[in-house]
Structures are given as structure tokens and as C-alpha cells.
């Protein structure tokens, strides 16, 4: 790194001479980021202490009233419960499906490209398209799911998937898992490239079965990929919005409301910007804590 020997200048001038390149390169990004992310974030914090309706010129300070209301807001707890289901299943399921799929294609058997292309395909599609396609799949009149079930004699399983409060959340979640599997799958495919085959062969020679080789030799070497996939799915899970918004709007009987859809409704249809800001910060806090815990775990795993 070069330094600029300029002994006769003032400290400020020296500082400027040394750092101006760094400042100039960072400034545009930092400026944009500060104005359109950092500043609004603090505005959110502020709004959370007001009962602003999105229109009044005066934002009335109400202290912690919004946060006190959170505790007794049944809909919030319902939504958080749904988010918990979403985050757990929406993280576990794609990994549980994506990892075995990746191992099946590890050796790049015939048709590798076809399979990989197809499994990853939902990832490139807009969530709106996925939501519409799956609303159709679940439609009780012409949807292929019920018709397929009927065709193989499982009439008693078929139902109005998105209209049954007991299954609607899982139905939407299934569409989400379907879309996320491809992402996790390609991560594992890449991760498997780094798995030592010598160890596997050694295990085979030691008489370890398929399952034991997979569990004790392959999976531990993929810990980093599992971590990354988990972190990304977790963060996405707390702010999940798109599929629910388009497929069910939170219904039936609030059975699919998530904290993100609830926040949207409060902010943009019920005129409760202040309360919605508080909701959004709850979501932020939960997802930050989860991320931090996760990063800690990851660091510990790496060291």
C-alpha cells in the first residue's frame, strides 16, 4: 500500500490525501444506503412509538403503547405461530429433500443436466407465477392435485386445500418448499464436490452401509453448506410474504396469516402505520437474533 509523504500539510489535508480514494469509492454506496435504508430504519423505530395513521401531519407520541398492545394481540401470536411452523418446516424440508437429491446426482449419472435444470427451475420464477400455478394445483374444481388423488383412488385425501383452516398453511408452505428445494439442491451439489472420496471408500472398506456412510462421512463434511442453507432459509422464513399474499391473503379464518402479511395489512389497508412499524420491528428483532445466533454457531463450527 502506498503512502503519501506530505509532511508540510495540515493533519486534515494529510488525512484527506491518504483517504480520499477510499472515501470517494465508498461514498456513493454509503450515501444511497444511508438515505434509503438506514434513515428509514430509524424512522421505523420512531414510528413504532407513535399512533400515526399514515396521513396526519402530526405523528402523536404514544410511548410504549404499541408494544403493550402487541402482548395482547391475538392475531400477532397466531401469525407468529404460523411463522414458527413456516421457519421450521420451510428450513428443514428443503434441506431434507435437497440433500438426498444432490447425493443421487453426485456421480453425475446420465440425465444429470436434465434433472439439475428441472429441479432448479422454480428458483428462476417469480413468486407470483408460483402462487398462481399452485392456486391452480390446489383448486378443488379443476386442480390437478385432487384430480390426481382421485385417479389413484385417494378420494378421501382430496380436499379444498387452501380453504381448510387446518391444512391451508401447510399447503402454501408446500408450494414454498417446492420452490426452495432447487436452491438448496444446487448448494449441496457444489458442496459435494468437496467431499473426500477417500474417506468414503475407506468407510466402505470398513463395511459401513449406505446410510452410515451418508450420515457419518458425507453429512459432516457438508456442515458449512448446511449452515449457509439454514441461515438463508431462516432469514427468508421470517419475512415470508409473497405466496401467502397471492394465494390466500392470510385466510381462511386467519389460518395462513404471517407476521409479514399482518404488517402489510395494518400498514397499508388499516391506516395503522405506527402499530405496523412496531410489528415490523418485532419481525426484525426475531430475525436478527436468529441470524446472530446462527452466525455464532457457524463460527464455532468453523473454528
Amino acid at each position: 500500500m502506498l503512502t503519501y509523504p506530505t509532511p508540510h500539510r495540515s493533519p486534515l489535508a494529510r488525512h484527506w490525501a491518504r483517504y480520499r480514494a477510499g472515501y470517494a469509492f465508498v461514498a456513493p454506496a454509503l450515501l444511497l444506503y444511508s438515505v434509503f435504508m438506514v434513515y428509514p430504519f430509524f424512522q421505523s423505530v420512531y414510528l413504532g412509538f407513535t399512533d400515526w395513521n399514515g396521513a396526519d401531519p402530526v405523528k402523536r407520541w404514544v410511548g410504549l403503547a404499541n408494544y403493550r398492545r402487541l402482548a395482547s394481540d391475538d392475531l400477532l401470536w397466531t401469525a407468529l405461530r404460523h411463522n414458527l411452523v413456516w421457519v421450521v418446516l420451510g428450513t428443514v424440508a428443503p434441506i431434507a429433500i435437497g440433500l438426498p437429491l444432490a447425493t443421487l446426482l453426485w456421480s453425475r449419472p446420465r440425465g444429470f443436466t436434465l434433472f439439475r435444470t428441472a429441479f432448479f427451475l422454480p428458483q428462476v420464477l417469480s413468486p407470483v407465477v408460483i402462487a398462481i400455478v399452485w392456486s391452480w394445483v390446489y383448486n378443488p374444481i379443476f386442480g390437478i392435485l385432487n384430480q390426481g388423488l382421485d385417479a389413484v383412488g385417494l378420494e378421501n385425501v382430496s380436499r379444498g386445500w387452501l380453504g381448510d383452516p387446518d391444512v391451508a398453511l401447510y399447503a402454501v408452505l408446500a408450494a414454498s418448499v417446492w420452490a426452495e428445494v432447487g436452491f438448496v439442491f444446487v448448494l449441496f451439489l457444489a458442496g459435494l464436490q468437496g467431499v473426500s472420496r477417500d474417506l468414503l471408500e475407506a468407510a466402505t472398506l470398513d463395511g459401513a452401509g449406505r446410510w452410515r456412510r451418508f450420515r457419518d462421512v458425507t453429512v459432516p463434511q457438508l456442515a458449512n453448506v448446511v449452515n449457509v442453507a439454514t441461515a438463508l432459509l431462516l432469514i427468508g422464513g421470517f419475512s415470508a410474504f409473497d405466496l401467502v399474499f397471492v394465494m390466500t391473503g392470510g385466510g381462511p379464518a386467519n389460518a395462513t396469516d404471517l407476521i409479514a402479511t399482518y404488517t402489510f395489512t395494518e400498514a397499508f389497508t388499516q391506516n395503522r402505520a405506527g402499530y405496523a412499524a412496531a410489528l415490523s420491528l418485532v419481525m426484525t428483532a426475531i430475525s436478527l437474533v436468529t441470524s446472530v445466533v446462527f452466525i455464532r454457531l457457524r463460527e464455532r463450527g468453523e473454528s
Binding site: 435504508m37 434513515y39 404488517t263 400498514a267 412499524a277 415490523s280 426484525t284 436478527l288
Partner: peptide, 9 residues
Amino acid sequence: VPFQSVMIP
């Protein structure tokens, strides 16, 4: 942080 934390303001 999720996008929602800045969405409203």
C-alpha cells in the same frame, strides 16, 4: 434485517 423494517417509512 428484513425489508419490512424499512418498508413503511
